[in-house]
Design a protein around this nucleic acid. Sequence first.
DNA 1: TTTGATTGTTACAATTATGTTAAATTTCTA
DNA 2: TAGAAATTTAACATAATTGTAACAATCAAA
Lengths: 221, 221
Amino acid sequence: MIIEDEESIVTLVKYNLEKEGYKVFSNSNGEKALEHIKEIAPDLILLDWMLPNLSGIEICKILKTEKKHKHIPIIMLTAKGEEEDKIRGLNSGADDYITKPFSHKELIARVNALLRRVNPSVSEDIVEYEDLKVDRIERKVFREKKEIKLGPTEFKLLNFLIKNPKRVYSREQLLENIWSDNINVENRTIDVHIRRLRQAININSKKNYIRTVRSAGYALD
Amino acid sequence: MIIEDEESIVTLVKYNLEKEGYKVFSNSNGEKALEHIKEIAPDLILLDWMLPNLSGIEICKILKTEKKHKHIPIIMLTAKGEEEDKIRGLNSGADDYITKPFSHKELIARVNALLRRVNPSVSEDIVEYEDLKVDRIERKVFREKKEIKLGPTEFKLLNFLIKNPKRVYSREQLLENIWSDNINVENRTIDVHIRRLRQAININSKKNYIRTVRSAGYALD
DNA sequence: TTTGATTGTTACAATTATGTTAAATTTCTA
DNA sequence: TAGAAATTTAACATAATTGTAACAATCAAA
């Protein structure tokens, strides 16, 4: 992952399932950045202290009060190197604090460290949940060590759900994360793919794994 | 949360359970604003000093004398910067006092600070009360570590009540917060859902948890 | 081009949830 | 304690949500 423009003031990093890599967005206006954050829910935010309209500290505080965004890791970037400033920054909810000037290498190292800590299974090549195994390198899925053939969409679905087992995702969230480009897809379509995935997983087995949460969505469970 | 129109004179901020975010309403007439406040019982009010029909100070005083609304935090916005005015404003019951011109970011910071103080558990993913546990991420409810199956409405009900244990909510408040869209629902319907929730919770257990307050409403207790 | 796999959509069936009613019960008050 | 008011409860019809199968369109590989 390369952060192209070191000058950009707010940088959002978001994993894209389809491309299987991180995408980077930049924004130099505090207020707009906050909107953008709420819109895309990035996996990580690099935040300058000084910003037009809304300071980094303020954005940080606002995000940390909101359930939907409080978990997003934030790295504060700033020229302020005073001990006191660091404490203020971290107290406002930032996960890390880097003072300028910093080396590009160090920044990337810290970004990767945070991403790994926050979402370990995103970056893992092989993820297992009970007797299910997803191998992202070989693009294969196993149940009880036997391979299961999945179509691309079913693979993405399972791959997504297994990142946070037990967590319930709404159909909207699944659309955003798995279809991303072409959002004009019916809700029912998701159900159909869930069904296909279930069918494929349940080879002469009892456990369903995919829980339907009525009026909410689906979860791997 | 973004307050779009800084010119609007009374701004009501209300948390919406279904959308899981704050909604903002505006009103430029004092009298109408008061009605609206009583109708929706917002979580926070931004109040201008000067208003047609009914001044901000008057609204503030009225609300603070009413049991049902006295807990709502109020921020007074005004051009009057005199020490004396500030004291008058705060004495009339306002929780905070901001003089124009003020920065948008300061306003947002203060709003969020108040909301956090007043409604701290809104944003928590997992809430517990005695041997009850509500997990909003997995959308599961537990009693004594055993899972309890709830329908969507029962889940919302419990989820709402557990945010402020022991606080009594009227049927009207429950309607507003849980049914929100379609308010044309009989009061008796709430009772029925309360019953279903009780039934689900009381798996071979003694404690009821849901207290009926005659001619007032229900509370988790 | 043909073949087969994959995809999104629709219609309908199955399931689950919801709101209403009315009767039974409890609680309050005179 | 009788009667009124409020709440609980069960039953039921209706509504909403989800599951399923069949189909047509698209795409990729042979």
